[in-house]
Design a protein around this nucleic acid. Structure first.
Lengths: 184, 184
DNA sequence: TAGCAAACATGATTGCTATCATGTTTGCCA
DNA sequence: TGGCAAACATGATAGCAATCATGTTTGCTA
């Protein structure tokens, strides 16, 4: 690398950030490489100096975004109060209305079904989320913590996806609210 | 119409069927109009004799598939036993592995978030599903039937989406199984 | 039975996109 | 300090897809 390694690494990260934001907002197939590069302040040329293909970027950016989210979760401790805050945030209208800043699972899982290259990193992160959420439920029986974690994950991901897809504000709000109320 | 109206209507329906199947399998942007027409045994030419645009086909085929599914639900009665069968089917590996024959919400909701033309019909059908499911839970308190219906819908849709997206058979099976066990 | 318009097939057209090609700039390193 | 390779910009290339254009077939209908 003849350019300063630090700058190159920084640009690499910026590409990952912009890509993951745009992908979450518009889906993998809804964003072109040129757009992503432009969003990072570059032209489309040097893309292949950073990644071998769009697929590779999809995989790496998804893994990046999920890892960052998980690290954010790990910073705060775990208690019933903090757990309630997490639920409130995840099922908030803000999260629903800002997919680009939100959960990759809710935004991209459906497309990842058909993107084998992304499934590997995605699966790794999903496992980590499930395990982390299970440790965040210590006031539950150890035996059911993992099952509860999986159930909760399915419910909140499904709720956000449905609340984003419907056209009716009242129904959309109702989905978020009722699923939120479903957790003691 | 100079061609027999019945044949034309039949072809129209076949286009809807093939389109909804392919869309569920590969997503809206993953299927071309030519492919859909070829699947119905026609060339790409007469597409615009049947629909005004791809968007219109997306909306109409989604509405069609969801309505057919709902009508299937209405044929059978409602009882705790039948309800259990529905849950078993929805959270089955067969459903997970055959999106083309399965639920449009699980297959397409994430993309519908960014397709305003599809959101109208989709929302109408989601409302109908929620109401239908609420009447299918008569052994629950009337006051919570609708909330339970929304929670169940979110959970099962999320579970199928996640189970399809992960790469690990054991985890995928576990998600379906645990969410299934979450319903008494 | 003649004519007509819907429905068909073949074949443009236009625009977008992933990827590659080529030349240029950069600043580390020998 | 001069050379080199990474990283940049501009500009092909090739393929695909939505839509339109044109001519042909069809069988209802007057």
């Amino acid at each position: 690398m003849r350019y300063p390694a630090s700058e190159t690494a920084e640009k690499h990260t910026r590409i990952l950030q912009e890509a993951s934001r745009l992908f979450r907002e518009r889906g993998f197939s809804g964003v072109s490489l040129s757009e992503i590069m432009k969003a990072t302040g570059l032209t489309h040329g040097p893309f292949y100096n950073h990644f071998s293909s769009k697929e590779a970027l999809m995989a790496e950016s998804t893994e990046y975004a999920m890892r960052v989210s998980l690290e954010g979760l790990e910073k705060v401790g775990n208690s019933p109060e903090i757990d309630a805050v997490h639920l409130d945030r995840y099922l908030s209208t803000y999260h629903r209305d800002n997919p680009g800043k939100g959960c990759s699972m809710a935004a991209l899982a459906a497309e990842i079904c058909r993107e084998p290259a992304v499934q590997g990193p995605f699966t790794t992160q999903v496992k980590a989320v499930i395990e982390k959420m299970a440790t965040y439920l210590p006031w539950r029986s150890k035996r059911t913590a993992r099952a509860d974690s999986i159930r909760r994950l399915s419910a909140v991901v499904g709720a956000v996806i449905l609340s984003r897809a419907v056209n009716d504000d009242a129904l959309s709000d109702e989905i978020l609210r009722e699923v939120r109320k479903g957790f003691v």
